[in-house]
Design a protein around this nucleic acid. Structure first.
Length: 309
DNA sequence: AAGACGAAAGTGGTTGA
DNA sequence: TCAACAACTTTCGTCTT
């Protein structure tokens, strides 16, 4: 990842060995693993061309246009200027009607969008999501509104679903539980709208990578940087053994972290790890067992045990 | 007493006929 | 649309530290 000189010091260990992860918008300390700042401006391109369906280019040129403003700064009004008055009689009445309709429609949508975006920003700042994700979520929500996907669903749940999708696409995953806590919407409801919206909009989402969770979980558990990189290494090996496919990524990440902590004598209970990862101890145990079986980690664990004695 | 382990039954979602 | 199925959870009893 990008190495950048930052004058900042780690508040935990006073180290200056900070690393900046552009994708996640996180700065973390390489010595103790603490995530110091995870809400940053992201300078990378926040959209991708992902479908053939509406083929239109999303490229934005000229002045910046933002989806977190309800009309992207580009409203439409019918016949605002002089051309209206060149018409007479019926034609002119028609224009008045059109203008009225346009006004009604746009104010209805605008009102909805204003509310929704306020909610979106509230939730996203609660979760300290990078700006790029916020933008993406706003874009997804706007598209959803335009396609009438909000009908029959609560606005909040669609917002949560859009945010969840945006997080996934930017490889800065948050669990459904976290979204649920921040938005006050039930987990399954978020999951439902998330799936619905992404399907309807043809958004493809790669299955999230367990390694993306490691930094955050490790930081929450105050684990050292060595443990963190060890668990990433374990994850890589697990992926080669095809232990990761089909399983919930959080469970795998949690198990890898648990094992890594054991090996470095920084033992955390299964309960603790389970809590921050949002899975149960049982799941950790199952993954943990699979890891031991497949990767023959027993020796390494025994080694550290002996060392302690 | 707390943590680790495992079995059994239940839940919500996916898949394939 | 329904049933089989896999992953995960909840609950609970037992073993280990």
């Amino acid at each position: 990842m990008a190495q950048k000189d930052l004058v900042k010091k780690c508040p935990e260990c006073q180290g200056i060995n900070l690393s900046w992860n552009r994708d996640k918008g996180e700065i973390s300390c390489k010595d103790c693993g603490l995530v110091i700042e995870d809400k940053m401006v992201d300078f990378t391109q926040e959209w991708r061309e992902f479908d053939s369906e509406d083929g239109e280019s999303r490229r934005r040129t000229g002045a910046p246009m933002t989806y977190t403003q309800f009309d992207q700064g580009l409203g439409t009004e019918v016949g605002q200027k002089g051309d209206l008055f060149k018409l007479e009689g019926k034609e002119r009445n028609k224009f008045f009607r059109l203008r009225k309709w346009q006004y009604r429609i746009s104010t209805a949508i605008e009102r909805n969008l204003k509310l929704a975006l306020a909610e979106l920003i509230r939730v996203s700042s609660y979760l300290k999501l990078p700006r790029s994700v916020e933008e993406e979520a706003a874009r997804i929500y706007t598209l959803a509104v335009q396609r009438g996907l909000v009908r029959g669903r609560s606005m909040e749940s669609v917002v949560a679903g859009a945010l969840y999708a945006a997080c996934r696409r930017h490889d800065v995953p948050r669990t459904l539980d976290e979204l649920s806590e921040a938005s006050g919407i039930e987990k399954k409801e978020i999951g439902r709208t998330y799936r619905f919206v992404t399907r309807e909009l043809g958004i493809t989402i790669l299955p999230s990578n367990p390694a993306d969770y490691i930094a955050r979980f490790a930081s929450a558990l105050k684990l050292s940087a060595e443990t963190q990189s060890k668990s990433v290494e374990i994850l890589e090996r697990a992926q080669k053994s095809e232990l990761t496919s089909g399983r919930g990524p959080t469970g795998i990440a949690a198990a890898a972290l648990y094992v890594a902590a054991l090996m470095h004598g920084e033992k955390r209970t299964q309960r603790e790890v389970a809590d921050v990862a949002g899975v149960t101890e049982v799941t950790i145990r199952n993954r943990y067992k699979e890891l031991l079986d497949e990767l023959e980690l027993e020796k390494e664990i025994k080694k550290t045990k002996k060392r302690k004695k």
